[in-house]
Design a protein around this nucleic acid. Structure first.
Lengths: 251, 251
DNA sequence: GAGTAGAGTTGATACGTATCAAGTTTCTTG
DNA sequence: CAAGAAACTTGATACGTATCAACTCTACTC
């Protein structure tokens, strides 16, 4: 039974508790991930003006739909969001998982229409950043402009890493790399990167990694009997980072 | 990368011949692909000031190396450029092919270091656009800023299309989609989209599509005996677009 | 808290593409 | 233009992962 996982690792205590979202970007405990470091206090205030904070999304509900008109990008505040692309012939591809502090929705900029749907994997909250106003603001805040160029560039880098994975790596290598990535991202938010709950289903994982659920399940069993990880439903503990890194073949 | 399967905007025909490079962006016959439509004449002039035009690159030479410090993005003027990512364990992944009018090199923005190498597939010429100056200029030209956001976003969209291909499509489907993409992009430059010379080797194609050269070769033979395409070395003619589209399963 | 639908696991088998091998053709360079 | 190297093709076989099937566990619903 993994019904005990509910407790996330402590949040740095600000004036507000975790159920009453902070009222400003400056106070947000995620600002280190989400905002450009270089932004001045006064500049953060101007950004805050345009951000719609803490929009809640129920599990399996969408933040936006594919084909929907693009108007904003989003930051995850709480929970986890997946992005999914459906092709003309009905195939679905999970293109990304987004954790608190991470930005998503930038796929729609090029032709003013989203090319993905964004779906909550658990009850989540997202900040909405209207793009036209962000653009205006970027013109007057060079470091914000740069930050967004960088964000989009790292999205490209992440996509290319996935491309390489899909193209060159075995099922086991892909899974190892995913676990390391998730672990790193939990750590970045001061949560345990050793023991954590995967917010996504086996189906989401397999789809994202270009595998079947059966293969994912088998690899998990294999990694578990090799005592590299321990899995109980969605609860994962990494027992041997060294071996996991070796399998992932990522330095 | 905007090299994959995205649509290209048609080019307006210019007065100058393709072998004597124009001396300004305004006169360049590729400006319809390369530049934001909305840019005013006076604004084009300001962009021209910062662009280093027509830097020549010999076949298999690099425009930039992976890990090299990022300082500029590039537009292909003549020829064809591939981008290649090498992983820590020495695997190489071709991440994109870039044709005249297309922009590449945006992968380096996020951490000021290129994550790919850019290599000429044939003798090529590229325009270099120093990024710091482009950023400055973007701040004062909103439509240029928007254009670059859009360029990066279509790079993301293209990468995600490749991800879907690699994850969900058969070898034959991937090849069909690649041919259609290349065909579309030749057409966009007022060259034949029916009969053309592939600038990349079988090895590049197979690497890009996550296959082996043998498989690529076999598929080509198969498509040829089905009279869907005709292949003579690197010279390709598409005989049956309808069937090709059906195979590619892309509307 | 029982009943049930969905998610996950495990096993047997099939299939697509990789791998290995042996050619042939094309390109490069003196 | 000859000769070697590199690129490409084609065939035989191997292997990783998909598919199909049966089952168990988990999480809702009333």
């Amino acid at each position: 039974m993994s019904s005990t996982y509910g407790e996330r690792i402590p949040v740095t205590k600000g004036p507000q508790c975790r159920h009453s979202p902070s009222t400003s970007c400056g106070d947000c405990r995620l600002s280190g991930i989400c905002l450009p470091i270089a932004l001045q206090e006064e500049e953060v205030a101007r950004l805050e003006d345009i951000v719609n904070r803490g929009k809640p999304v129920q599990k399996s509900h969408t933040v936006y739909h594919q084909e929907q008109e693009f108007s904003a990008v989003y930051a995850v505040r709480v929970g986890c969001i997946k992005t999914v692309r459906t092709t003309q012939d009905g195939k679905e591809q999970v293109t990304g998982f987004y954790f608190p502090g991470e930005i998503f929705g930038m796929d729609g900029i090029s032709n003013n229409r989203h090319t993905n749907s964004a779906i909550a994997l658990e009850t989540s909250a997202v900040c909405e950043i209207p793009f036209d106003r962000l653009q205006e603001l970027s013109s007057t805040l060079p470091s914000l402009q740069k930050h967004f160029f960088q964000l989009m560039s790292s999205e490209i880098a992440a996509d290319q890493q996935l491309i390489t994975q899909l193209s060159k790596n075995s099922a086991e290598e892909r899974m190892a790399a995913l676990f390391l990535s998730v672990s790193t991202r939990f750590s970045a938010r001061n949560q345990s990167g050793v023991r954590f709950r995967l917010p996504m289903s086996r189906g989401d994982i397999s789809n994202y990694l270009g595998l079947t659920v059966e293969t994912v399940s088998r690899i998990l069993s294999r990694l578990q009997s090799a005592e590299i990880i321990s899995v109980d439903n969605k609860e994962v503990e990494i027992l041997d980072f060294e071996q996991l890194r070796q399998i992932a073949a990522v330095a």
